[in-house]
Design a protein around this nucleic acid. Structure first.
Lengths: 93, 93
DNA sequence: TCGGTATTTTGCTTCTTAGCGAAATACGGA
DNA sequence: TCCGTATTTCGCTAAGAAGCAAAATACCGA
């Protein structure tokens, strides 16, 4: 679960997740939104995969990534839960 | 705002935040919960300060840190918002 | 003013990570 | 089978971050 924090720490990876929120995309399609070399993006994909945040689906020679919403949601909720956030504020008497 | 992600990326810093969730503590008091040297913790404090996640209050020679809940909450909510999470699931017809 | 305590700053070393180009892998079509 | 496309793996370099010991800073009390 700690891999999720690591994955979210990098701006490029957060942008990838944002992109995938709209629709699933192939690796190359994602790469076209960045000024980074393909191998660099490939590395980011690996980190996101290890965190379980994205799931690859290989069709022929292209790999389509889709956002694993539940994992991201779980992670954020766990964080908020850990800090006891997001629940109703104490009522002022 | 991006400093928040960086701050959350390190396990020790997350633990510091967890500790401060219970009650505010002095730097030394926090340090006693770790197996790390004081300067190392001091570095972590600096990162958390820059992210606005903790606020130092100096009284005499001791510095008490308190969790800045709102910043943390804002950051997590922003994240969830950015991913359109946390809002009611689509109803199955 | 001197000594002691609390904390940070400084100057390192080491580990990790992001980045790249080049090579490797995998697949589909001609 | 050979070629082209899509993607990853393989070194490598450079930047960043975490760790420490030692020194600096700041404050209090005697």
């Amino acid at each position: 679960m700690s891999e999720v924090y690591r994955a979210l720490a990098d701006p490029s990876r957060r942008k990838i997740l944002q992109l995938l929120r709209e629709k699933e995309m192939t690796a190359g399609e994602i790469a076209s939104h960045f000024d980074l070399a393909k191998p660099t993006l490939s590395g980011h994909f690996a980190v996101l995969r290890e965190a379980g945040l994205v799931a690859p689906e290989k069709v022929g020679t292209t790999i389509t990534y889709r956002l694993n919403v539940s994992v991201l949601e779980e992670a954020l909720l766990a964080l908020m839960d850990g800090f006891k956030l997001g629940q109703s504020k104490e009522k002022l008497p």
